[in-house]
Design a protein around this nucleic acid. Structure first.
Length: 114
RNA sequence: CGAGCCAGCCGGGUGAUCGCGGCACGCGAGUGUCGAGGAAAGUCCGGACUCCACAGGGCAGGGUGGUGGGUAACGCCCACCCGGGGUGACCCGCGGGACAGUGCCACAGAGAACAGACCGCCGUGAGCAAUCGCGGUAAGGGUGAAACGGUGGUGUAAGAGACCACCAGCGCUGCAGGCGACUGCAGCGGCUCGGUAAACCCCACCCGGAGCAAGGUCAGAAGGGCGAUCGGCGCGCAGGCGUCGAGCGCCUGCGCAGGCGAGCGGCCCGCUCGAUGCCUGUGGGUAGACCGCACCAGGCCGCUGGCAACAGCGGUCGCAGAUGGAUGAUCACCGGCCAGCCUCGGCUGGUCACAGAAUCCGGCUUACAGGCUGGCUCGUCCC
């Protein structure tokens, strides 16, 4: 589970990140990354897990695995960083899930810094 | 040993690293402790709790349906009865009423609900005859899920409960057993009556509405407006009188309610509230925070009562509480299950179900890889 300070809770954060942020698709996940230089808060991360993933058990498993993959890379993000990860069908059983999440974030950072 | 019936239970384990939520303690870093299920599911019943309504009565609407018990309650559970199935353990049944009324019963068939006559049988008339007409009949054939009792006899032109005996069934009476549903025995009766109520309906009993986004607190305007009671009357219960009788009318007693204005949650009679109020106006909000929110119809053990469901008493335990939503991620070893190989004990590969709390309990229903325990029945063999 993510530390409380890094959890994205407000609906407004979700909409701005998915609209303004860099979008990178890898494997069974879609990552949106947005950096707001005027915001000095710690980086926030949020998840979108729809019914396409499966039933309640499958959705929770996908969310937990994505959060676990996200935890080690969160502190590398700059202040004001906003990450939203959307789970696609099959992500609850995808063995490469953690690699896909980290690769997508790295790719999005590389593109936004240019 | 084989086949089967019933009840209860488990439903991965251990370790390492990195994490999350609640509670308690601590100034703090932190420490300790607890952290998904038998179905948490479907949301189909029943309750607790909350708000609204609530004197009482009637109508409408919904539900339940053998009997007795259990329970906070139930459409649940237990025991029994009845009907059906099985050699048996045992299983199955939305199990009141079809002489209160109405409706419906396809196809086939001559005829399907005050039955009916196709073939046949019998009598009679015509005809040389084959055959045809008229009448009688329902024993035999045929149709159907179902054809208005069965067997034998008397009887007859042929036949028929037309009559007789026994049997089956229906109804009534008596006796015996049972708290009861009901059962057993005896007698009598008309001689025989269809099904469907998960069709309307009738009977008995039960039910106010909405739901934890219930509901409450933070939450607070200033200003303006709105007010009053003498009607002889209402409802229920009991008793009396009138009446053929009554649910009708009158009288008496007891209990409840109380006239104006406003409001009223199925409808009506009617009822409720009334200045800490209502209406208006203005400002804010569009699920924000906190409370509700987790210790109870509680789990386990023992004793007592009961066939049992269950109840009583004593002891003991503390058992999730999130809100973009915790209860996990990764790895190693072990263990199930399936397949292949083979030196019969291992190796290799695959796989480990259904499913994730959201106010809380009691049930029902549905889903579920694999496994364990106990009791019982039938068959075969041995002692």
């Amino acid at each position: 589970m993510l530390p409380p300070a890094n959890r994205m809770r407000a609906a407004a954060d979700f909409t701005t990140t998915t609209r303004r942020g860099r979008k990178v698709t890898r494997g069974t996940v879609v990552v949106y990354l947005d950096v707001d230089p005027d915001d000095t808060r710690t980086p926030l991360a949020g998840l979108i897990v729809g019914k396409a993933v499966g039933g309640s058990v499958a959705r929770h498993r996908a969310a937990r695995r994505i959060r676990a993959a996200l935890a080690p890379v969160l502190h590398d993000l700059p202040r004001g960083g906003r990450v939203v990860v959307r789970a696609l069908k099959g992500s609850d059983t995808d063995p490469q899930l953690a690699d896909s999440v980290r690769a997508a974030i790295a790719s999005a950072r590389a593109r936004s810094s240019t």
